[in-house]
Design a protein around this nucleic acid. Structure first.
Length: 918
RNA sequence: GCCCAGAUGGCGGAAUUGGUAGACGCAGCAGACUCAAAAUCUGCCGUUCGCAAGGAUGUGCAGGUUCGAUUCCUGUUCUGGGCACCA
């Protein structure tokens, strides 16, 4: 009986589906475990072999945990709102709802073939009204909450109103508040809401016709599509994520994310400690507030620089300098963000004519404006210390400003030295102090003299939360007399209306602005961004069909945090930060019992494509093989990787690929010309390069093809065998044969091609049990540590050894099948039933290894002379140093190296090794 | 420029706390079975000297610590990723 994987896999996939083996329900009597994949955006391109990597890993872990007795929640769904579907709609006229539905079907079909254990009864789709009703509901929670900094948590907006009514604020009294008109009250409250609308500079992408969040803009271009992004003033919705900056930072200490992932989030949040201090402008009332992280360098300040957009610029500019300043402001305005970014090294600026007074020395310090100071960070003004900061140094040199040296020989006059270790000079009361100590001394003095205060700053900005697009969640908001008013919970969902056209609205608004019935009801015309639905989806899976709440407290208490979250690193600062924030808000408001969504995060690496190239001689239809390509002037062309075996081109397939190649001729690796119809000719060798896997590079490999050819079990194991899940690696289909051979070898432990069944009920030998128990130990610990590649190799070792031992014992084999179930579920299930079991192998319990089968009595000790391995000696493991030394000295090889001399020392590590020092 | 991760055979990779470097697999070579092919099986397989036994050398590079270093430390080069006039 042979291993007919396609029949077996089809049979069991149908059986599992009809028996609903993957359906889970909350069960207080069982320990829960939650394994989550980052749900996919259902793009039209379908899956390539890179996509399922993480899904296979999570599937293995889910099945493993289930066999270990856990009640495992392992759901799947689709992040189905978003830009690409709408872009596609604009291009083809097909409604996003239609293309999304079709794409989801394709995805599910492809996923199904790989045999994943998702509980599809819990599927969510973010574009489904039953789902986005609750996204809108969470938005209302954000809109109707504020961050109470003294309680350090979000609270309903009513508590803020109550506070204002009873005791006012630092800006107004209680009675003033009571007498404010409603618009004024709402305006004030808007400064506190966690989701708020405000007029400000946004990232505007003309090509996409929408605003983007900071993390969706890369070097001045949109992340999606790579279109230019400019700054534009617009009314927008924002998420007050900065209120959570500290807690988002602190929470990283309580989660198991990779160091690089934490680092990325920390950088994005960008916490820095420093001080704000005031500089009095000479002869004026104005003070300029600067932010610095180096108060220790206060005596090195030679000038101040303000951002051109700083609100005090006009006030302090002297009459003499007005023209210059205005010219400079004009110049700055004319420059796009991208120009500024590209020309970072170029120094520009302008003197304002004003002087500030040094708070300690009273000296006059010129005040400049310059592009290199950003309006949005700190106070928008800095104190420049040219001997310690390279940008300040370059600026001082450019404008011929004097440079005060406060760090003695640490400053060499040719460049700034940003050290923190120098001893301060020319620094008044700080003289003689190392900079690190001076920091606190300066801060204390500044605070006690009332010149400034300690201040923590964050680089992170509030996140833009509206998009001028159609395919997203409508805001549950109506604009009444210029005030945004939230819908009642009972009125949710506010359904996304059907549109025929996706063009922008009258004034750069979203397509919804073109709908008469929409604008007549004064609904907000922008929609929520892609990350809205994905910020809380992990909660909905716990209670997906609940019509009355987003997720019952009972469900979220039972399933708790996601135990293992698997996905790519591309969501490091976007999705992960937003969903961490939403979780904290829901926690603060008492809707859930934990404030970090994901306990452990595993980032699967990217599978790169391995591209192949052919070389066409310029101006001809002749192609030349790799070794000979430098003899000609050639153009390098991508060739479909599926036509190439290793690096050898399948010339016939290539000629049939595109009509233009039908008449192509070839010069082979040996320099001979390829001739039609001749057999045993030389080879055409292709060039090879690792690139991103993409259709345009013809280096994509479709999992469906591999599943068809080798089966899902082989495909799953091969993806894991490729290397560590977290590593990026190029795809190479060649090695898949090895894994397939392994599964056939396993099959032959149970079945013989001629005789059929060969497994027996005979008792196992000690040697067989040793192989089994060592495998259990190794595979269990590898699986626990997500080291799936080494687990696969452990399976291979185990089957190789059992084959050598001719072991066909049911006792051993059935335990092996349970171990294999997470990795190769179909073949395991089939053989499990062949062994006579009636129920699914998933209901078996994971075998435990027993120390007693693993104990060794002797060991082949490696024996080194002066650290170099020279021989091995078999010795009893109970042997102590003294007896071991005797045996070692008797050894022939050791004696040869000793040349009759006595060793200086013999190092003996019991159970490990021996080293003889001569 | 700053931060993080990494560098091991022809290739993917292994070596959990410093203790036999190269597990497992691919590719390659030689052989068995076969009329032949497929499948399967056996042996070899870092480099180098040697008929062999056995040496020398070897984990990006240069040092160091240690009886012993792929592993720890210092410096350095390169690759990948993130951030970037953030004061």
């Amino acid at each position: 009986m042979e291993y007919h994987f396609s029949e077996i896999e089809k049979k069991w996939q149908q059986n599992w589906e009809s028996q609903k083996v993957y359906k889970v329900t909350a069960d207080a009597g069982k320990k829960s475990f939650y394994v989550l994949d980052m749900f996919p955006y259902p793009s039209g391109a379908g899956l390539h072999v890179g996509h399922p990597l993480g899904y296979i890993a999570s599937d293995i872990f889910s099945r493993y945990k289930r066999l270990k007795g856990f009640n495992v929640l392992h759901p799947m769904g689709f992040d189905s709102f978003g830009l690409p579907a709408e872009q596609y709609a604009i291009e083809t006229g097909q409604h996003p709802a239609t293309t999304t539905r079709i794409n989801i079907e394709t995805f599910k079909k492809q996923l199904g073939k790989i045999g994943f254990c998702y509980d599809w009864s819990r599927e969510v789709q973010t574009s489904d009204p039953n789902y986005y009703q609750w996204t809108q509901w969470v938005f209302l929670q954000l809109f109707n909450s504020w961050y109470n900094t003294s309680a350090n948590k979000a609270e309903p907006i009513e508590t803020l109103i109550k506070k204002f009514t009873e005791s006012g604020s630092s800006e107004f009294t209680a009675s003033e508040w009571m007498n404010f008109p409603e618009t004024k009250k709402q305006e004030i409250l808007m400064n506190y809401r966690l989701a708020f609308s405000s007029y400000g500079e946004v990232n505007w992408c003309e090509a996409l016709g929408t605003v983007l969040a900071n993390d969706e803009v890369i070097n001045g271009f949109s992340e999606r599509g790579g279109h230019p992004v400019v700054k534009k003033k617009m009314r927008q919705w924002y998420l007050r994520i900065t209120a959570y900056a500290n807690r988002l930072l602190e929470g990283l200490n309580r989660v198991d994310f990779s160091d690089s992932m934490k680092e990325m989030q920390k950088n994005w949040i960008g916490r820095s400690e420093g001080a704000e201090l005031d500089f009095q402008i000479e002869g004026q009332q104005e003070k300029i507030k600067v932010y610095t992280t180096r108060p220790d360098t206060i005596f090195g300040v030679d000038f101040l620089v303000m951002a051109p957009e700083h609100e005090l610029v006009a006030n302090i500019t002297s009459i003499a300098e007005t023209t210059n300043v205005e010219e400079y402001l004009q110049y700055v305005k004319s420059r796009s963000d991208r120009e500024r970014m590209v020309e970072v090294k170029q120094v520009s600026g302008c003197f304002t004519g004003a002087y500030a007074l040094h708070p300690f020395t009273g000296e006059k310090i010129p005040v400049y404006i310059a592009e290199y100071v950003l309006a949005g960070y700190g106070t928008g003004a800095i104190m420049a210390v040219p001997c310690g900061d390279q940008r300040d140094y370059a600026f001082a040199r450019h404008f011929n400003l004097p440079i005060t040296n406060i760090i003695g020989s640490a400053y060499d006059g040719t460049e700034a030295n940003p050290t923190k270790d120098a001893i301060l000079e020319n620094s008044g009361f700080l003289n003689g102090l190392p900079m690190k100590e001076a920091m606190a001394v300066a801060l204390d003095k500044i605070e006690s003299m009332g010149l400034g205060t300690r201040k923590v700053n964050f680089r992170m900005r509030d996140a833009g939360f509206s998009r001028q697009r159609y395919w997203g969640e409508p805001f549950p908001i109506q604009w009444i007399d210029g005030i945004p008013v939230s819908l009642k919970e009972n009125d949710l969902p506010l359904l996304l209306p059907f549109v025929e056209k996706y063009g922008a609205g009258p004034e750069g608004e979203g397509p919804l602005a073109n709908l008469q019935e929409w604008t007549a009801s004064h609904y907000e015309t922008s929609t929520m961004p892609g990350y809205a639905g994905s910020s809380w989806y992990f909660l909905r899976y716990m209670d997906p069909h609940n019509r009355s709440v987003f997720c019952s407290r009972e469900a979220s208490d039972y399933w708790g945090q996601v135990d293992v979250y698997i996905g790519g690193t591309e969501h490091a600062v976007g999705h992960l930060l937003y969903s961490r924030m939403w979780t904290k808000v829901l926690f603060d408001l008492g809707y859930i019992g934990f404030d970090e969504p994901y306990k452990k995060l595993v980032n699967q690496g990217m599978i790169q494509g391995s591209s192949r190239f052919v070389y066409r001689i310029k101006g001809t239809n002749q192609f030349v093989s790799l070794a000979k390509k430098d003899d000609y002037e050639t153009a390098q062309l991508h060739v479909d990787v599926n036509f190439v075996d290793g690096q050898i081109l399948n010339i016939e397939a290539f000629k049939n690929w595109k009509p233009e190649y039908a008449t192509a001729t070839f010069i082979l690796e040996d320099g001979k010309r390829w001739e039609d119809g001749l057999v045993n000719q030389g080879n055409y060798v292709c060039g090879i390069e690792t690139e991103k896997m993409s259709k345009s590079k013809y280096n994509t490999v479709n999992p469906d093809v591999l599943v068809e050819k080798y089966g899902a079990d082989t495909f799953r194991m091969y993806e894991m065998f490729l290397g560590p899940v977290e590593a990026s690696k190029p795809w190479d289909t060649k090695g898949i044969e090895g894994v397939h051979r392994f599964l056939r070898k396993l099959w032959r432990l149970f079945n013989d091609e001629v005789n059929g069944k060969v497994w027996t009920d005979e008792p196992s030998t000690a040697a067989e049990l040793k192989v089994l128990h060592r495998s259990i130990q190794k595979i269990e610990s590898d699986t626990e540590q997500f080291s799936f590649n080494t687990a696969v190799s452990a399976f291979m070792v185990c089957v190789n050894e059992l084959t050598d031992l001719k072991c066909n014992k049911k006792e051993v084999l059935e335990k092996l099948l349970i171990l294999l179930t997470p990795y190769a579920p179909h073949i395991s299930e089939e053989l499990w039933h062949q062994l006579g079991h009636k129920s699914t192998v998933l209901d078996a319990s994971y075998p435990e290894w027993d120390e007693k089968y693993l104990v060794e009595t002797a060991k082949e000790y490696p024996v080194s002379i002066n650290g170099k391995l020279r021989t091995t000696i078999l010795m009893d493991l109970n042997l102590g140093q003294e007896d071991a030394e005797k045996l070692v000295l008797l050894n022939e090889t050791v004696q040869k190296w000793l040349e009759g001399k006595a060793p200086k020392k013999i190092i003996f590590i019991k159970g490990k090794m021996v080293n003889v020092v001569i």
